[in-house]
Nucleic acid binder design. Structure first.
Lengths: 197, 197
DNA sequence: CGGTAGGGATAGGGTTCT
DNA sequence: TAGAACCCTATCCCTACC
């Protein structure tokens, strides 16, 4: 009985895009109140705008590097305060992501403070952590297969050429006596890995 | 985006509760300044405390039985066709739920054709199915522990008094050579079970 | 300005419908 | 299963009022 699903018209979508251009993302109530858009979007709520913008952004990314990109975004926001208790000496560095996500109102500004750029070899325990991060951030409901994990790491870190082999070795180890479990699919041949932490 | 959302940790929440016990509500700056809590809450503002306390108070009202209830709702849409090849003589019957959620479309109605209400012994294979249903419907991303499984079954079925023991026995069996896997947590003592279908 | 209460907005996870 | 639309609510922000 609720509304039978109100599909977005091209006009509405255009208005939303224009509104974001004018006021920025996250300003949905503002966009809605702007007389320039309010007539077109009068049957939409600020939450609707937010949801639709999310859909647009997601589908726009689906060129090739979909999930890894999305996942990357979630790994950055962490350090609110200094959080300088980062005791892990990573020798892999996160890639800079291409999105200009600066928020003028928030004084904190850029998120990561220390991107060390010298991509050397991956230390074993660091690689394990990265694998776990990949699986966590990919958030695939049935776990992730090797290819997805490779892709994630390639997208988000500088890696030595033998990364894949190293990852495979660590995957075997982590799932034989570590925090990962292998998932065999009934209808597929690939084996997925999922974290049980 | 400066800080896309800083979820409250259990430690922080505990500190807040202790602080309110000690200083009273509305004394947020005081709580923050108390050296007993300031370290745990160092990344929170007085307004954050106020907001979180409001949120805690609200959800405290709605708390406990939620999951089982929500899960129940999902178990109904299942019976598609009649599935009358149900060769197992169930002796457990679904509880009538308080919500008027009878599903008229499913002809079989109640699952068992022979609802002997004298909660007698649970047939082994039926109990297994119920356990799997519980885990499936609870949809807990890291699997469900015994308590959650017990609760689900108690909420949704009439059970004999020895249900918990039976369920524990079956859980052990299903995870040793069946479709379940045990998940040991790093930071908790309970063992969860998850389906590997 | 510093602090709190309350209303309202946003972000992100989840769910439903197709 | 995926994709789009919609829902839920913890967290965050803004303003009025001391």
């Amino acid at each position: 009985m609720g509304a039978p699903k109100q599909k977005w018209t091209p006009e509405e979508e255009a208005a939303l895009k224009a509104g974001v251009l004018k006021h920025g993302t996250g300003k949905w109530r503002t966009i809605l109140s702007d007389p320039q858009f309010s007539s077109v979007l009068k049957s939409r709520s600020n939450v609707d705008l937010k949801d639709k913008w999310r859909n647009i952004s997601v589908t726009a990314l689906w060129g090739s590097r979909k999930k890894a990109k999305l996942a990357l975004r979630r790994t950055l926001p962490a350090p609110k305060q200094d959080d300088n208790n980062n005791t892990t000496p990573l020798s892999i560095v996160p890639l800079a992501n291409g999105e200009g996500r600066t928020n003028p109102t928030s004084p904190g500004g850029s998120v990561t403070g220390s991107p060390q750029t010298h991509a050397s070899k991956i230390s074993i325990t660091s690689l394990d952590r990265i694998i776990l991060e990949a699986i966590t951030n990919l958030k695939e409901p049935r776990g992730s297969d090797r290819t997805s994990i490779f892709m994630y790491i390639e997208e988000n870190f500088k890696t030595p050429p033998n990364m894949k082999r190293n990852v495979s070795v660590r995957l075997k180890h982590l799932s034989s006596n570590g925090p990962l479990v292998k998932i065999k699919h009934k209808y597929r041949f690939s084996t997925n890995f999922t974290s049980v932490g």
